[in-house]
Design a protein around this nucleic acid. Structure first.
Lengths: 221, 221
DNA sequence: ACAAGTGGAGAGTAACACTATCCAATGTCG
DNA sequence: CGACATTGGATAGTGTTACTCTCCACTTGT
């Protein structure tokens, strides 16, 4: 397959494919001569991955580069797999970060997470932003969110392919970041469902009797 | 409070505050004369919100503008509240979008969501990207993710403040988008915990016993 | 022979989120 | 009263990102 066919199959301009080659996101093709190289299905697949990560997950080119470099050079242990996935996807570590509320939550949950896990910093940052954004969340609600996150994580880990490390790493990184958005969309839709059942015809003002009293009663099943 | 004090309190340059004023993210202060206006705590609070949404949630200025406009002009019903929050936070509706897999999932779940809910389009897009990214997810796993998302949504809805519509709307929009990131971080941390418990010292390859051959046997629990 | 395509490199572009500069009109301090 | 910093307001400039375009010498297919 030549450049023009590759770009046509992937649905993007030749210039863009060249750009990804320059940036090291895509391996060079096999050189047949000074002015022609041959690309195969793995190149096409890689372009699909780049497109999904950039357009779908909103990753920057630099992040995608880290993902692809990791995919091409996997770590040694299964546990490092997810750790690598996270170091690629999380924000940078930050020494002067207030992590007490995050630490308190994690201790309450009893989760075995490293002291300097990048996701711990992400959690601390997210909780801090809730604060600066003027949102307060009850501890018991945080615990509830954590339980939901754990339910998702159990599925993540059990669904990791076990045939090859490469497939596992790919699933760990790509599946994690793409499923983030599936989960977010599902949360929105579940909100709509729950909201519809709870206050379908309740007004924001006027005759509204306490919505609080039966707010959660319909979800026992 | 004058401009310089407002910008100092919010921890951002005067030029940036002026920019937000220009873009309509921040109400103008009360004009005391042609060259001075007075700002109050609501302006400071709004700047904190903008900062949380831009830096924390990664929203664009245009999205933040839609959020603030909605906050300043709330809808009529409680149910519209979350709908409005979603139309602000979700991607655009798309007529030519393949929604069959999303529709199938939602029908299986039996959720009461509108045919043209923007979150439905988001879900369809996210599922499509899983495909172009080369990730396949079993239907039963999707159902599991949906259950986790629903658990989060129940907390979302029951935690909505019921005192004033403004507070509810603020929580619905700001809480939803900021808690997205809390949930994502919690999912990463839960992955680390689950992974640590599952394959703490198992090798992907190398001198240890062939991880390939028995790779999948340990995940039954 | 010759149009079309190739790898490669560099410059150009559009969007975005600020950031800097300028201005006339104050406020404020000695 | 006058020097001087600050204000609201407008306009232009900056740095980053993710492409996109142009050019080139050189094959390749017909």
């Amino acid at each position: 397959m030549r450049m023009s066919e590759l770009s046509r199959s992937a649905g993007m301009p030749v210039a863009t494919v060249k750009y990804y080659l320059r940036e090291g996101l895509l391996r060079a093709g096999i050189h047949l001569s000074a002015t022609s190289a041959s690309y195969d299905g793995t190149h096409l697949e890689r372009l699909g991955l780049i497109r999904a990560l950039v357009d779908g997950a909103g990753l920057s080119i630099a992040q995608v580069k880290r993902v692809t470099q990791t995919l091409d050079n996997p770590p040694d242990t299964w546990h490092d797999m997810l750790g690598t996935a996270q170091s690629v996807l999380c924000g940078p570590p930050d020494e002067d970060l207030e992590t007490t509320s995050a630490d308190a939550l994690l201790q309450r949950l009893g989760w075995a997470v490293s002291e300097r896990s990048p996701a711990r910093a992400d959690l601390a940052r997210a909780l801090e932003r809730l604060d600066t954004g003027g949102i307060s969340v009850r501890a018991q609600d945080l615990d509830g969110y954590a339980a939901a996150a754990q339910a998702a994580a159990v599925i993540d880990v059990t669904a990791l392919p076990t045939d090859t490390p490469g497939a596992a790493l790919r699933q760990a990184i790509v599946g994690t970041v793409l499923l983030d958005h599936v989960l977010i969309a599902l949360r929105r839709l579940a909100q709509e469902d729950v909201s519809a059942r709870t206050f379908a015809r309740r007004q924001t003002s006027g005759a509204a009797d306490s919505a609080k009293s039966d707010g959660g009663a319909h979800f026992a099943g």
